[in-house]
């Protein structure tokens, strides 16, 4: 049986753990609100840009081939980007992404394809390197507060790898934010951009117009020049979703931890009281026994 001293020490330890998990829960909640606000802020830009692209696509030369849309007839190399966080203690947030990337990597290799792996976030980088996967590109220090400039840098790297023929397809695995307790694991192709995606995804903010716009320069050129922005938006959205998911997952994980700590404290307090009672009874018995012996 544990001594009183031991139990007291455990209680103190659990109490301070609970303090930490509570604090982390609250910090995550605040960061989650901020991450959600950023997703909201992106929306008008993303909608305007995508709708403009769709308009341009209908006016631009159909026969024209765009480098970022070129489907490779025989896909040999596929890039997989694992989007994780820089910190742990967020439930299965990081593990899910890493597991999926490793699974997909194995499948692609079994199909006789080459893979190139890249990772965003210290956790993904660390785990994949530890398992001896070679990473062609890594980014860290941005999962807390991703900026558009980060998305631009990542998109640029993807576009370079794609247009130079180092890879035939770029896929990103990330957590999509649904609610603080629920994230959906997504696996989306960023490159090549599917033409139907650009022309079909009507978001309904603006009615279709048949006005004779003046295009400066011509629609095909504008379209081509704006295509990278399309990639940037897709990457930025994934970064923001992942960031919100991370905070949500951490909040939930920390809430569960705080609750377990609470429960444990209850059990320990009960054990403490019982032990204290036993000790007192023991002492009384000893005093009584001593008095009897004297008498």
């Amino acid at each position: 049986m544990a001594t009183l001293h031991d139990i007291r020490r455990r209680i103190t330890s659990v109490q301070s753990t609970r303090k930490i998990t509570k604090a982390m829960e609250m910090v995550a909640a605040a960061k989650l609100r901020r991450a959600q606000a950023r997703i909201e802020a992106l929306r008008p830009y993303a909608i305007d840009m995508v709708e403009m692209m769709m308009d341009l696509a209908t006016y631009s030369d159909e026969r024209r081939e765009f480098a970022l849309m070129r489907e490779h007839p025989e896909e040999r190399t596929v890039s997989l980007v694992a989007m994780t966080g820089d910190r742990g203690l967020a439930g299965s947030f990081n593990a899910n992404v890493i597991r999926r990337v490793i699974e997909e990597d194995r499948k692609l290799r079994a199909d006789g394809k080459k893979t190139r792996l890249a990772a965003v976030g210290k956790k993904g980088i660390g785990t994949l390197r530890f398992r001896r996967y070679e990473l062609v590109a890594t980014w860290q220090g941005l999962s807390d507060r991703p900026e558009y400039a980060n998305a631009r840098a990542i998109a640029k790297r993807m576009i370079d790898a794609f247009t130079s023929g180092q890879t035939d397809r770029v896929r990103v695995v990330y957590n999509q934010f649904k609610s603080p307790i629920e994230q959906t694991l997504m696996d989306v192709t960023i490159l090549p951009i599917r033409r139907e995606e650009v022309t079909e995804e009507r978001l309904g903010r603006r009615p279709v117009t048949h006005l004779s716009y003046l295009y400066e320069p011509d629609p095909t050129t504008i379209f081509e020049r704006l295509l990278p922005a399309y990639v940037e938006i897709a990457v930025y959205r994934a970064l923001l979703e992942s960031s919100a998911s991370e905070q949500g997952a951490r909040m939930t994980a920390m809430r569960n931890a705080s609750e377990s700590a609470e429960e444990m404290l209850g059990d320990l307090t009960l054990a403490l009281n019982r032990a204290r009672q036993a000790a007192i009874t023991q002492e009384i018995l000893e005093v009584v026994a001593g008095a009897e012996a004297l008498g």
């Binding site: 341009l56 006005l211 004779s212 003046l214 320069p217």
Partner: peptide, 19 residues
């Protein structure tokens, strides 16, 4: 700041899309 030079826009300008 258009790619081919500055463009001044006043009200009732022709519909225009520019980089």
């Amino acid at each position: 700041p258009g790619v081919a030079g500055e463009l001044g826009i006043l009200a009732r300008h022709q519909p225009l899309v520019t980089l």
